[in-house]
Design a protein around this nucleic acid. Structure first.
Lengths: 221, 221
DNA sequence: GAGTAACTCCCTATAAATGGGGAGCTGAAT
DNA sequence: ATTCAGCTCCCCATTTATAGGGAGTTACTC
């Protein structure tokens, strides 16, 4: 019998983790030996030497630290990882960004079930694995638009947001306008304006709607 | 041996459906005999007479028709249902709205795994079932703020959006401004203004950020 | 003690969004 | 044949957001 493959699962929805565990149980070569509910837990788990997983299944949108940041930190900490990204956002740019960060597999949540076992086995051998729909999108992107090589990544390189900026961002997503936010935080309108300007610059979006979308996608709200 | 409980699962993420099926498989009294990936499919399934499920497990946020609308339609069509709502939004107001629409159980996705079997058995007997965190929130809401009885529901009673309104809504979430939307749709700026006004009125939010938040929460984007 | 980051506020000016109304046209349904 | 919903566009007026800049305070680090 061949060596067991140990898997760590990270997703902020426990039901999804449990589902994956249940699916993986059907294959006796694979075993889930750890899971995390947010990015910080992943890093903590992997930084403990006694813990070891052959494959990391990683959701992108998680609270505290998101999947993108997790990969960056793992790389920075020189922690070897074979990561499968599990995502509801099938934006090609994000796929490419994750690939640059060293993930080996990318599966859309829409059809993860049929792919997850094969994906784990493939990446544990060091191979790449993408679910059908991701493959289609990647091919379309490459063939169709010949992917503008240089200008993808920095959309995701967000400067750290300060406490105040985060508070303002949260209130923006709750549909408050500048005056109301100023009232709620007991600061001046100009100050809120400044924070919004900082947010727009840092997150690189065009307007408050963009801020809100960023907040949702990154579980800040 | 007692009679088997048949379950229909509705969620737009197939992996979640598969996870639930895998979990339910561990109990031999329960069997999943159908699933849907959106609200329209649920209604279609239940309106066919040969199909029958004792329990419907229903996600709130689904494309085409969301969980709230599904319950309304089931009620309108006089289709008997024992529904467990499965949700990531633990807003008490939504829980109460769903209860008014006749759902028997309400489980947060965060701890669905440990609850789902018991919840199915409970509601199949006609009992109510809520996961711990939902119970806590309901109690807190009732005891703490003595729930303003009358003013909850209509936040969720959304008039049907037209094709054009949906297109505009989608473009708003993509950070386009009125002029750019007008260009993209080859219509006048005033027209886009009209659609935005209609959207604000129908969805009952204060600004475009509110529209964007509604759109993500309802998987319109 | 100089530097820096975060927090705070201000000015000016333009662009955009919001709120209220009205109104014509079309195609499908009763 | 009329009604009605959806699509389209317009008017007016006001509020808000966006964009560019500057600048003072604290608090913490090197």
């Amino acid at each position: 019998m061949r060596k067991k493959i140990y898997v760590h699962v990270a997703d902020d929805h426990k039901i999804l983790i449990e589902g994956i565990i249940a699916i993986i149980k059907t294959d006796k070569d694979i075993e889930v030996n750890g899971f995390s509910l947010n990015g910080a837990e992943v890093l903590e788990w992997f930084s403990k030497k006694k813990n070891k997983a052959d494959v990391l299944i990683l959701d992108i949108t998680m609270p505290v630290i998101d999947g993108i940041e997790v990969l960056k930190h793992l790389n920075k900490l020189k922690i070897d990882h074979k990561t499968i990204v599990l995502s509801s956002y099938d934006d090609v740019k994000i796929v490419e960004e994750m690939l640059k960060l060293g993930c080996l597999g990318y599966i859309s949540k829409n059809n993860a079930g049929e792919h997850i076992i094969n994906a784990i086995k493939a990446v544990s051998r060091g191979e790449q694995y993408f679910s059908d729909d991701i493959q289609r999108k990647l091919i379309k992107s490459i063939s169709g638009q010949s992917v503008p090589e240089g200008n993808l990544p920095n959309k995701f390189v967000i400067e750290q947001l300060t406490d105040r900026e985060l508070k303002v961002l949260k209130l923006i997503t709750e549909e408050y306008n500048t005056t109301q936010i100023a009232d709620k935080l007991n600061i001046g309108i100009s100050t809120v304006d400044t924070y919004r300007k900082n947010l727009l610059r840092k997150i690189k979006v065009k307007n408050s709607v963009g801020l809100a979308m960023y907040a949702v996608k990154n579980n800040i709200v």
